[in-house]
Structures are given as structure tokens and as C-alpha cells.
Design a protein around this nucleic acid. Sequence first.
DNA 1: TACAAGCGCCTTTTT
DNA 2: GGCGCTTGTA
Length: 754
Amino acid sequence: MPELNAPQAEAAAHTDGPLLVFAGAGSGKTRVITFRIANLLSQHRVPPYRILAVTFTNKAAGELKARLEHLAGADVTRDLWAGTFHSVCARLLRRYHEEAGLGPRFVIYDESDQKAVISRLLKERGLDDRRMPPRWVLSKIHAQKREGHGPDDLDAQTGFDAEWLDLFKGYQKALHASNAVDFEDLIVLAMRVAEDPESAAGRDLRERFRYVLVDEFQDTNITQYRLVRALSASSRNLCVVGDDDQSIYRWRGADVRIIRGFRRDFPDAQVVKLEQNYRSSANIVKAALGVIAPALEREPKQLWTDAALGEPVRIRTVPTERDEAAFIVRTVRAELLRGVDPKGIAVFYRVHAQSRVIEEALRAENVPYQIIGGMRFFERAEVKDLVAYLRLIDNPKSDADLLRVINVPARGIGDKTVDRVLGAAAERSLSAFEALSALVREGALTGAAKTKLCGFVELMAGLAGAAPGLLPSELAGHVLEATGYRSRLREEDSAESDARLENLQELIGSIREYEEGAAARSEPPTLSGWLERVTLASAVDAAKDVPSISLMTVHAAKGLEFTTVILTGLEEETFPYRGMDSDGIDDLEEERRLAYVAVTRARERLFITHAEARTLFGRTSYKLASRFLRDLPDEAVVREGVQRTPYLSSSPRDLDDEYSPPPRPRAPAWQAAVDQARARMGTARPGERVIDREAFDDLGDADAVAIRPGDRVRHKQFGRGVVERVEHDGSVTVVARFPGHGSKRLRAEYLEPA
DNA sequence: TACAAGCGCCTTTTT
DNA sequence: GGCGCTTGTA
């Protein structure tokens, strides 16, 4: 490992009292943290279990440990506390669950579980979920919880909607009854225990760590800050590292003012600034400085480099997002050709929705890629079903999980029966499963409902009985057998059911991976342990170590670096993004910092694209260049123009269309294109795809020749497929096979040629 | 009960 | 443009 420079060494070696490190982008922050911990361990003989390092992703924690292993040895780093706020809190709460009012095997509800809880509450109260959208209710709840407020604190205050407040109360009650917590609870509950002046647990927590380090401190929220202050209360050895220019999580409660105000809270804090960038070429650093310079409020600091100029930043203007995708493919190809490791190449976008077109282009050209984030795997129905069974075995009180699986696979327990169970649960203040068991025990049921529910209770009892003797992965397999889930899918025997079985197999594989990892750490593998890891995994944590380029949002790119970065969609409204309610200056400031983060990820080459027209969320609009492009200094960039007239690309035929329009005249033609596009959109009925439908109808009129076995088609839901059979009986019915969905009988008008 | 179609919804960023 | 819920049908 290379030597540290003077400020880095100072930050690493400083041991006693509060320490604030302003770490500019690419200034070797990770090295500083690593050295600091190594120093504490070896020079100051601090036991590893008395050091807490809060990182931004679990992957970062893993890498930190891996590096320390080289410096200090494996047995030392094993006991180090390193992880994200959420995973550290989960771990602490497993120990102090009683003080936090939780059972030992509490589960963590993710966003969809939370939404299900709210939806149920709305239904119970007879509230309209359009007037009270669960998303909105939840975001308000979370905002309050991040400030450290519970529903009871808000009671006295006016200004809170009574219905919402009642939902907040109901939500907390429901989570508690389910022995479940959400992401905010993890922080807040740990914070409350740690701040409690009376309890032994509180004292214990405040004494537990002699050194606390927090990375990416600019993205800390109030409760997280209170937590680390409490945890370092007795030692006062709190070291925070961050960069206010890279604060990009305001929307999730992070408050830049915390890092900016740290010196006020800790007047004796030592402050170190790391300002030399070791990561990027001088041109990239210049570009980054150009982007961040107009920011209104900054901690004074000057990022500099003595690296060579390197290649200029290339700004490419393209007509549409498809041309952008084509440019990305060409650029990636060229980079690979010049020998860049695919792992060193990344494509960034502001919102996930931009990835689809890029993916299609890469796939068509056989360029291997992986998408970071999106988390699609764990959102699949069959995966969620199995996870729900496992969570229910682990924690039978979890109503959200019970409701998910009580009739999956279908076992004749209908909505009415479920409502009765829920009613009984509400009446007796029990969880749904407890109420269900009670009803069965008391013989309060009759007829079909009785046998079905008894069967379900017995099934779950059997699974719970088997659980202790099995590894989590074995239990998962057993669940699939005992519930009939697997045999049901086998019987179905379609391409779709095969795909589901494969997904379930992959899930079991992921549990095995966890078990192996646990064995390597000589920990016992537990169901709770795996479930927790799955729920708290970050987008980056899920990245595979494979030779492929990476696609991700700029948020996901935080803390990473790449040889070559292609930053896309630099248009007003796209980046800076403008949502429905964002118009405040604070939002714009955060977008600017986000752009700064994006630019500073690149080591050697940075390409920036800007499309003149973009179709996003099914809507085409014409775009002005992003204001951030204007802020890039001319001497560090080259701007490359557009060759083609923008056109409205709404037909798949455009993909292989060799159409090349005449060179672009100036304003009038541009205006004509805009008008034409608007007129076209204006006359189309909602959801109607003018060009495709006409093309297909024409074929339909020609009848028999229109569509034949072997033709490639596209269906709204099933995607691309191949026609197997065509039936003409008044209307045209097509049997087509869709990879992942099997053979489907569909009416021809719902297919498009592909 | 299962499947297909229709409809309305949303569309930032994430632990 | 896609998803999930609801509706309609066999």
C-alpha cells in the first residue's frame, strides 16, 4: 500500500477526541480510514470489537475488512464492527431486542411489505387509497420517523391530518404486533436504547465502542447522527469523514447541515481537509470543478491534482435516446478494443427508466453488461412467496407474510375466510396467525373453512417443527415440497413455470452462499441472518464479480470509480431531474452535487451524452441541453454535434431503418419536426400506437399471408416470441411461444410484429 | 379457479 | 411504457 501524504497521515493517526475529515472526491479517503483502523488495532492495541466503522454499503464494509486483513490479520478483523447504519443497528437490536420492545426474531419489512400494511389499514378504515395513496402516507410517516418522532409525539401538535395520524398509529401498532420493523425503526430504536440514561442497555451501548468512524457522513440524517453521538458519548472518539459537495440523499432525510455544523457541535474537533485528487485526469478534475463551482453553499476547499491533463471530456449531442444508446455501444466497443477491462467501464443515468433502451442496444450487440440496482430478482412473485414462508416460519406473527402465503399455492382459503381471521385478530389484539390458531383450537369454524384452515395451521406447525434441525437452504427446499409449491409448478410444465422453478433454485443457491460465508466467518448460519442480509443489501452489494460493464444510476455510483464513464441524459428536466413537486432551489443544488459525483467517478475518460429528444415513461419531449453542460470549462471538453434531424421514433421498425434524412436545416425545420410530433401525439388516442397498429392491420386485411408460424412477434405482457400456429375462425388466433412464459393462445390484434 | 384483457396508476434517487 | 389490480369469461 502506498504511503500517505501529510493530511492523510494526520487524519489517520489522530486518535483522541472528535475528528472531522473533509475528503474531496478521489482524495484517498478509504485509505485513510483503513490506515486509521489499522493504526488503532496495532499501535494502540484497541480490541477490534471496540471499534465501530459505519460505511455506506455492506460491500464497502467487506472491502474495508479485506484490506485490514492484509494489514492486521484475519482474526482481528473478524470482530470489528463494520457495516451500514441499518445492518449495524439490526445487529445491535438482536442483542438489545428486549429493551427495544422487540422479539429476538423480528423481521425487517421492506417497502412492499410496508405498503401492504398501509393498504390493509386503509381498507379497514374504509379510506379511499386514491385520496390517501399508501406511498404518500408512508413517505410522511418515514419523514417523521427520521426526525425521531413517533405518532404519540405528534398528538398534541396541530397541523397533522387526523386520518394520517391515525394511520401512523395503526402502522406502528401493526408492525409491533407483527414483531416487525421498517428501515427507520432500526435506526430510531437503536438510538432510543443508546440514548436512554437509565437503562443498563443504554449505558452498555454508550460504553461499548471506544472508537466510532462514520464514512459518507454528509449523507447522515438526524437520527443517525444522534445514534453515533450516543454511541461515542463516553469516549468522545467520533471520527466522521465526508464531503458536503457529494451530499445526494436529502430526499431520504440526509442533512448536509450536519457535516457543516459538526464543528459547532464539537468545538474541540480536529478538522482535516483532503484536497488532492489521486483518481482522475486533470481534465476530469477541471470538469468536476466547473460543475460544482456554482453551488451556493460549500465548505471552502480546493480540489487539485498533479495528474496529467489526459483526454478531454467528450460531450456528444445525439438526436434521440436510441442514438444515445447506439453511441454508448460504439464507445464501449472502442474502449474494450483499446484494452480497458469491462469492469472498468460504467454507464450512468439519472433514473432507472433510462436503462431499458441502453440494455436493448447492448443486448442486440452482445456486449455483456450488468445492471446495478433495480433488484428485480427479489421482486418476483415466486421468490417473494418462498421468502414469505421462510419469514413466517421464523416469525409467525408477521401478518404481511401470512397474508401473502395463506392461499399460495391455492388451497381454497378465500377472501371471506381471510377477512374473518383478520377480524378475529383485531378483536383479540392478536397477530393473524395467533388468531387463526385460536379459531382452529376453539373449533369456531365450520365446513370447508375449517378443514382448509386446520390444514394450513398443521402445515405451518410441521414446517416450524422441522426448521431447527435444518440448514436454512434445506428448510427452503422442504418448504417447497411440503407446501406443494414445487409440485404445482412441475405440473404446470410450461416455460414459465420452468423459469419460476429456476428462480427458486437460484434463491436456494443464494441461501447456500450465505451459509458458506457464515461458515467461513465461523458463525452459525441462521434463517434470521440470511433474511436480514437480503433485506438490507444495497444495490451495489448485489453486484456480481463478472467481466461485464456496469449500468447504474448516479446514486448507486457513489463511492465507486471507473476507468471510463459514460454519463447519459444531460438534458434539462432529465438531469437536473425535474419531478412533479421539485422546483425548489435546494433540489437543484442537490442535482448539481449529483452531477459532481457522476463526473468524479471517472479515472481516465469521461463521455457525456445529451439527446435532443427523449421518450421516457412513454412520452416524447424535446430537450434543452443541461445547464451543467454549460458549466463545463471549454478547455477541458470537446463538444461533438448532431448529424441527423430529430424524428419521432415510436415504431420498432425504426431500429433497422436505414432512413437518413437530409442534413438539418436551421430553425424552421426543427420547429416543423416539433409541430409534427405534437400533432401526431395529439391525434393518437391514449395508449394507441399509431404506426404499429396500422402496419399490423394492413397485414390483417391481407388475411392468410399476414402472420405465419415462425414469425417473430411482440406481446405487451409476454415480450418477444415466435408464432407456432395460426387459427382463422372469423378472427385470427395465434399460438406463440414466449421465452419465460411458455406457449400462449392470443388474438392477433394484441400482437405486434417484431 | 385460471387466464386474458382492460384500466388506471405511476414515473427520482434507496436502506 | 410497464405494472398491478380489477373485470370478464370459460
